[in-house]
Design a protein around this nucleic acid. Structure first.
Length: 267
DNA sequence: GCTAAATGTTGAT
DNA sequence: TCAACCTTTAGCT
C-alpha cells in the first residue's frame, strides 16, 4: 500500500526487470483486454513516477509508442517475482512477463493507456514531488502560504505537493512539532523549508528501505527492530508519545484518520 | 470463518 | 460528506 516512495521504487524495479526488451502482456479482466493486447510484445523504454502516479512507456511495432498510466490507489499491488510464473487467477488486471520475471497488477485505481496529451493533463494536476530532482518546493509554498486550509489537509492534497499520504503527513508534522490543524498561511517559511527537506530525506529513505520509517534510532526501543516502532504517531492512538508520554490523539481529517501528539504539537 | 480497516482517488449528492 | 472502486490483512469469533 503505497505512498510516493512505493511508486518510485516500483518504477525502478519494473524497469530493471522488464526494461529494454519485449515483454508479454496479458489480463484476466475483459475491460483491459484491449490494453493488454496493445502492450503484448512491446518494449518497455521508460518507467517513471510522479507522486503516486506510475507511467510505463512502451515502444511498440505499431502504430506508435504507448504509455501505460497506473495508480495503485489504496490497495493496489504490483509485485515482481522470479520465473516460472504461477497460473494467472482471480482479478488480474495486467501481467507483465519475460524469460526471467513476471509481475501481476491487482486492484489498481487506474490502469489505462494514455496519449502524451492525457499524460500531460495528469502531470499538470500534480504539485512538486519531493522525490523528483525537477521539483520546485516554492510552487507548494505559494499555495500553502495563501491557504486557510489546515496544513494536515494541504500535505495530502496532491495538487499542492505529490507523493505524500496519510503516514508521511502524520509523521512529518510530528517531527516538526506542527499542529495538523494550523492553517497553511500561518506556517512560517522556515518551517516549510524544514518540512520539505525532511520529506526529501524520508521519502528517499522509504524508497531505499521499501517501507516507511520516520522514528530516529534514539527514539526507538532498543533491541530488535519492530514494524510498530517505525512511527511516532501513525496508528498509535491512545498510546504514549515516544517523547513526552502524552496519549496520542486521533481524529478524521479530510476523510482519513489523523494522528498527533497534543503536547508535542500544540495548537 | 467473518468483519472492519487500510500507506487513495473520483464522482455523485 | 459519502459511496464506490477492489484486495489484503489484522483482529475478532
Amino acid at each position: 500500500m503505497p505512498e510516493g516512495h512505493t511508486i518510485h521504487r516500483l518504477a525502478r524495479d519494473l524497469y530493471r526487470a522488464f526494461g529494454r526488451r519485449p515483454v508479454a502482456a496479458s489480463t484476466l479482466q475483459p475491460r483491459f483486454d484491449g490494453g493488454a493486447a496493445q502492450l503484448d510484445g512491446a518494449t518497455l523504454t521508460r518507467a517513471d513516477a510522479h507522486g503516486k502516479h506510475l507511467f510505463l512507456t512502451f515502444r511498440a511495432q505499431r502504430p506508435a509508442d504507448r504509455c501505460l498510466h497506473v495508480h495503485l490507489g489504496l490497495y493496489g499491488k504490483f509485485p515482481i517475482a522470479t520465473a516460472p510464473a504461477l497460473e494467472p487467477r482471480g482479478a488480474l488486471r495486467l501481467r507483465l512477463e519475460n524469460e526471467e520475471r513476471w509481475a501481476d497488477l491487482r486492484g489498481p485505481t487506474a490502469c489505462e493507456l494514455v496519449s502524451p496529451v492525457e499524460r500531460e493533463v495528469i502531470l499538470a494536476r500534480l504539485g512538486p514531488d519531493p522525490l523528483r530532482s525537477d521539483a520546485d518546493p516554492d510552487r507548494a509554498w505559494a499555495r500553502i502560504s495563501r491557504s486557510k486550509v489546515a496544513i494536515g489537509a494541504l500535505l495530502m492534497s496532491q495538487d499542492v505537493l505529490s507523493g505524500i499520504g496519510n503516514v508521511y503527513r502524520a509523521e512529518v508534522l510530528f517531527r516538526h512539532a506542527i499542529n495538523p490543524y494550523r492553517e497553511g498561511r500561518l506556517l512560517r517559511r522556515v518551517d516549510w523549508d524544514a518540512i520539505w527537506l525532511d520529506l526529501c530525506v524520508l521519502l528517499r529513505e522509504g524508497v531505499r528501505a521499501g517501507r516507511i520509517v520516520t522514528t530516529r534510532p534514539a527514539d526507538r526501543p532498543r533491541g530488535r527492530a519492530r514494524r510498530e516502532d517505525s512511527f511516532y504517531v501513525y496508528r498509535r492512538a491512545g498510546e504514549p508519545c515516544r517523547i513526552c508520554g502524552t496519549e496520542i490523539r486521533t481524529e478524521v481529517m479530510i476523510g482519513r484518520n489523523l494522528f498527533w501528539c497534543p503536547y508535542c504539537q500544540p495548537a
